[in-house]
Nucleic acid binder design. Structure first.
Lengths: 195, 195
DNA sequence: TACTGCATATATCGGTTTGATATAAGATGG
DNA sequence: CCATCTTATATCAAACCGATATATGCAGTA
């Protein structure tokens, strides 16, 4: 979902400044399936204001930089609902961790195991944090997505713990042989062996 | 992982053209955790060639456009391994589907249920396709990532099937009341209710 | 037969996103 | 007292994404 729609959604229930939107988008449950930076949010807000989908005014603050607080217009609300009714685009998922794992026959075994252990640790932290704030999530839709996210993380943790041993074993056949085999496959056009 | 590193990885086991790289990156198991378009791949290959990390020559083909086939240099192989040894960046996951679900109290219930059913159907197709090509995945590292990916999809499918009923029930409290409650929370600074 | 659409193959272009950085001042903490 | 964090907005280059252009062969079909 593009940043403009994200901003509309963030403004639906309360008026906010760009900074506040960023903060909320950075914490659960939102950060688990959408992320943005200031570099996207501020231009998006400017454009939304030009299009009349949001309205804003500068609130002067004591001892703080001025705050530009925006809220949705009726047109903005309509626009948001329109966007949500469109068939959703495909998920986009990019994971350096999985990429490294996939390429891990190039790397020292100890390094790979450390990578997996760090991943398990970071999953455990996310899970702990989610458990702590679980009772704050009361809206039905929010709760549904929260629970789904939780099951994602728990599932990955379980998989890594249960399958870590597969990466501990000695390296498979020597690399040169494997390469020769794949090269053969390639030339004989028999198997589309994955990458 | 940036596109240049991706291309190096794709060239590790066999020489390829940009088109072939794109094709392989578009199919499992690669498409499940990395994606790229031509708009990224061709510039990346040009730059890699300028940097001496890959070498290429144009193969003339009968009845087809010319093919520029690249392969890794020793410097390219070293560069790839260096990149893989760096601590991996965080996963990036963006899902329009989850975003729509999260906002689903704005949408007609039937629409949301249809969305979920379509999601289940598409998960089931992915799972079927993975099962069909499962026996082609033999490399240990590839197999590990493949199995992890499979468990992702299977987990999400199970969750959606088991929890779909939660979205069937009548809408919770009327929206205006809920809004008032949240507005109160906000002003009293007691609860950081998520978005 | 002609038409339609798909696969092969490379490439560019505009718009968007990302990540780092600039600016500025109060709050926090060692 | 100094470093670092938080609040607050903003910009910029580099990278990325999606659509489109170009050209040809091949398979299916009306």
């Amino acid at each position: 979902m593009d940043t403009r729609t994200l901003c509309l959604a963030a403004l639906l229930r309360r008026e906010s400044s760009g900074y506040e939107i960023k903060k909320r988008l950075d914490e659960p449950p939102f950060c688990h399936f959408q992320d943005t930076g200031f570099g996207s949010i501020y231009p998006a807000l400017t454009r939304l204001a030009n299009e009349g989908l949001i309205e804003g005014e500068a609130h002067q603050q004591e001892k703080r930089p001025d705050k530009k607080v925006f809220n949705l217009t009726e047109a903005g609300r309509t626009h948001l609902i329109d966007a949500l009714m469109q068939p959703p685009g495909p998920d986009r998922f990019r994971s350096d961790f999985l990429f490294c794992l996939f390429m891990s026959d190039l790397l020292p075994r100890q390094h790979v195991l450390r990578l997996v252990d760090q991943r398990i640790a970071s999953l455990e932290q996310v899970i702990r944090e989610m458990e702590e704030c679980a009772d704050k999530v009361t809206r039905r839709a929010g709760r549904f997505v929260f629970d789904l996210g939780y099951s994602f993380y728990a599932n990955e943790r379980a998989f890594l713990i249960n399958n870590r041993h597969r990466l501990e074993e000695e390296t498979e056949e020597p690399r040169t042989e494997a390469e020769e085999a794949e090269r053969h496959d390639y030339h004989s056009h028999t198997a589309g062996s994955p990458l």
